[in-house]
Design a protein around this nucleic acid. Sequence first.
DNA 1: TATTGTTATACTCTATAACTATA
DNA 2: TATAGTTATAGAGTATAACAATA
Lengths: 149, 149
Amino acid sequence: MAAQRHYDELARQLSAVGAVKRDMARILPHDCPAGSAAVLTLLARYGEMRMSRLAELLAVDMSVTSRHVAHVADRGWIERHPDPADRRSRILRLTDEGRAQIAELNVRTTQLLADRLAGWSDDEVSQLITLMTRLRESFGDCRTTRTPA
Amino acid sequence: MAAQRHYDELARQLSAVGAVKRDMARILPHDCPAGSAAVLTLLARYGEMRMSRLAELLAVDMSVTSRHVAHVADRGWIERHPDPADRRSRILRLTDEGRAQIAELNVRTTQLLADRLAGWSDDEVSQLITLMTRLRESFGDCRTTRTPA
DNA sequence: TATTGTTATACTCTATAACTATA
DNA sequence: TATAGTTATAGAGTATAACAATA
């Protein structure tokens, strides 16, 4: 059926989108790789949170989250406070240095995308964002379903 | 301006789409990681080709391509023939074993996507493919432009 | 000299499993 | 016992640079 060809093509595009991600990663500061940038960006957007919540937003294992967080904490971009309500948890919070770093990241990202997406309309960018968000949800929901207990 | 927020969101979606790729990678056979699967799929789609052409389609450095190709060649899934027209080059060609491996990959990929994309219409999948393809072109073109000499 | 491809090296990202501390 | 988080380890993917063979 026709869906089969669509699936193959989608798999191919997913495989090849790595080149776009690498292009974006190349403009990052040397001590702020993609994993660190993602941590900072999510904390800026959603505010302070616990490790487990951040791991969920990053869509990676908490062990991976822990390493990324340690990296940005070592550089003073975030602080880890024990959660008074549950001392096993740690609350992550941006520092002023972290916000400065985010500002730098935003400048670079915006410059790059303004160049690469010069021929795109706002609507087209929005459409792509909407579809990619839905794609992640379609996969993420199934994973949640798969681990019910 | 509004575009700034769109750019941030696009960067976030690109970062998070890795979870989808990892979900797809998990269903692959143990001796056929994503890099190998990409090599086989591209040879099946575009027919025999040289290393440099494959590297371009994979959108990775030729050194990376060389390693992926060595992996699939070691398993007998492709053959490397010297190019009579330019003996520096090697022509890559699928074997029957390679085609069998591709058939297996297609079965698994189709199963997974049929499950994950159950709520998607053909049109929506097509739209996403179209936009992702265009995204890659927008980035790829700029890279080509950047390396003119 | 320039180009095609290979190999050595190093770095990032990731998951699994073992572990500590707390609930 | 169960959960939040850390760390050790291993594996995949990638790029850069040095290299070999050929154009």
